[in-house]
Amino acid sequence: MALKVDHVSYLYEEGMPLSRKALDDICLDIPQDQFIGVIGHTGSGKSTLMQHLNGLLTPTEGHIYYMGRDISAKDFDRKMLRSKVGLVFQYPEHQLFETDVFADVCFGPKNLGLPKEEIEGRAGEALEKVGIPREMYSMSPFELSGGQKRRVAIAGVLAMQPEILILDEPTAGLDPRGREEILDQIRQLRRQTHITVLLVSHSMEDVAEYVDRIIVMNQGRIMYDDVPKAVFAHYRELEQVGLAAPQVTYIMNALKESGLEVDTQATTIQEAACSLRKVFSAVGR
């Protein structure tokens, strides 16, 4: 197990009158080579949990183990952990600061104390992975479009060559085109490198098609942790906590209720269309 979260709780503003439990007894295993979607609405604790995974926050109770070693231990190398567990924050383009794109991506590997060739090699590789063309390397990050900036920021974390990549709402604030581009890049990255990706999102539609596993968070607890189809089967419970299953799930369930023999497990348009075509051909249309 690459990362193991063992009964972790976290209190905000510990000891203060306003303190509240942001995480409540979380247990989680994160293996290598898996694509995981983390769903929950604002305040569900998902961002807090993600910041625990690379040691930016320390649990109030419980432990987190990376490759079997407790990351809160005194002699544990947290800098190494941060390079192995890459975390891309929400609106990551707000962290860009260098005068050109290439230099900014070099920042991460430079902090790891690598030799110059290695740094530049990694930066080039990372930029290639997120689809930033060479002629943009010397441009100022602030000349780029919103979607491009964001991809440069993601490259900045990829250049550290993490084994686990956490993306906190990578599509927030982008238009449909930018959203699609980012999600496509992430999918491609998964295919090429087999790193574990945790995709944090509000949107079930964003994750439904691609991930192997969905973790649903609510009020600091894990509500579901299962394969997508099994999670979406709870669409009524999800609705109650203000989260929605993909629209297709609702359509298929509504059709089923109207007496049609359709596959309610369908989560994508293609699956739904396929199931409906069968129904139509059965009655000879």
């Binding site: 930016l56 941060r82 390079s83 707000h94 962290q95 600061f97 920042f107 900045g156």
Partner: peptide, 29 residues
């Protein structure tokens, strides 16, 4: 600060000049 720390930035160690330099990635954004 957290985002830069996630990229390996170090705000807590080093001498005065190193620490001042480390602030650039924080102050510019």
């Amino acid at each position: 600060m957290k985002a830069q720390m996630a990229r390996g930035a170090d705000f807590d160690t080093g001498n005065l000049i190193q620490r001042a330099k480390a602030l650039v990635p924080l102050l510019v954004p």
